[in-house]
Nucleic acid binder design. Sequence first.
DNA 1: GTCTATAACCTGATAGAC
DNA 2: GTCTATCAGGTTATAGAC
Lengths: 238, 238
Amino acid sequence: MLTLPAKSAPAAVAKVPSAVTRLTLLDTAERLFAERGIDGTSVRDITKAAAANVSAVNYHFGGKDGLVEAVFFRRLAPLNDRRLTRLEAAIKHAGASPVPLEDILDAFIRPSVDELRTGGYTNHFLRLMGRCLQEPNPKLETFLVGVFAEVVGTFNPHFVRALPGLPTGELFWRTSFMFGTLHHALYTWSRFETCQFASMSGMPQTTRLTGEQLVRSLIRYAAAGMRAPFGSEDPLPS
Amino acid sequence: MLTLPAKSAPAAVAKVPSAVTRLTLLDTAERLFAERGIDGTSVRDITKAAAANVSAVNYHFGGKDGLVEAVFFRRLAPLNDRRLTRLEAAIKHAGASPVPLEDILDAFIRPSVDELRTGGYTNHFLRLMGRCLQEPNPKLETFLVGVFAEVVGTFNPHFVRALPGLPTGELFWRTSFMFGTLHHALYTWSRFETCQFASMSGMPQTTRLTGEQLVRSLIRYAAAGMRAPFGSEDPLPS
DNA sequence: GTCTATAACCTGATAGAC
DNA sequence: GTCTATCAGGTTATAGAC
């Protein structure tokens, strides 16, 4: 026989609608943007999936553009802070000598793989981040450049010191290659199970990596690539 | 005094409207997709810019999806053929020994930088190609996987032979890293002048590369990255 | 083959009731 | 703060005249 313990009426669940709706919208938009792309997702798709009102997006974010920026800012700001913190630690650890390349890359890459998934974060944002450097919307590009500027400006001189003798132009491109490697890898890794390109090469589930393995693979690859010997006349195939 | 030579009436310029309209639509769609993204471009944008009729897209391509696939197929099919041809030449040149990694990468990378720009091609497609591995449309992904399947399947065993001892899983990811590096670099390079991310790092116009320089930089970086030493316990920062 | 006209619906944004 | 109602315009696709 079921006896319910006497208990006080549940405290009226305080409705804090603003904050809750705002968060739900951010979560839902993040997921749908990741799945269908930003231009492929309408405000109505988001509000319907979030069980919110159509005009909630305008109320909380001023419009779709504001929502898009908020979705990115929520994750990228702490991510880039974490990168800077880890770089500072590496600088302190290196003392007066240049920070070793692997340590710089670790500070840059590791947070994007781990920290983005803590605190109940899903990996939807990884998919979105994988694409964010190539989004065609110029306003969004401007916004993202602002979000990334400090990190890029702070890391750059350490890459220069860690790779003495490498011409500035070549270093710029290798940094860009590293960005491309990282973002594409995040994209592929975050949707490995459903990525048709991943399964194309006939490489099955055995190649799924843990986050730690992905970080290490990325650092190995990028460090070797950035250290590649450079000479104006390289022995290349005729 | 101007004397026009007697000449027969200009041969009535044969209207071959179908072929011309079709081509104009492909060119215009390629450009607009590159600039605004696929989902950010409507059929009406395209037909208006192409001075064609609204329903021409439906007539020639069966709808927007068909146009999108045709835009990619027109460039990717010859590109991938060229990759296979160059790989075959490298195989012949290597005789019985494994094809050197640099030669494999050259066969893969070089066509995407040069051949896409010959024959009056603009570099709009490069921008589009830079994004194509991350397009959120699943139908397009399926189509592209089909377009890339032969190249990936043919190149893979040569990467395996060129990198003996590298575990299969690690090789798969390094190949994926290389894909990411290449596509992101094509994107950045093709719009270097207007890319806000490129100018962010304070690296000015001096770092603009010729196609040949880009190919060499990419091969250097990818070859070194793919050859990076691999051990289950790597010395990584604590 | 090309065009107009239109169907059927979706888009982001907002004014104003509650 | 949240909702409904609505605006003005855009979306792909198609039927049918020429």
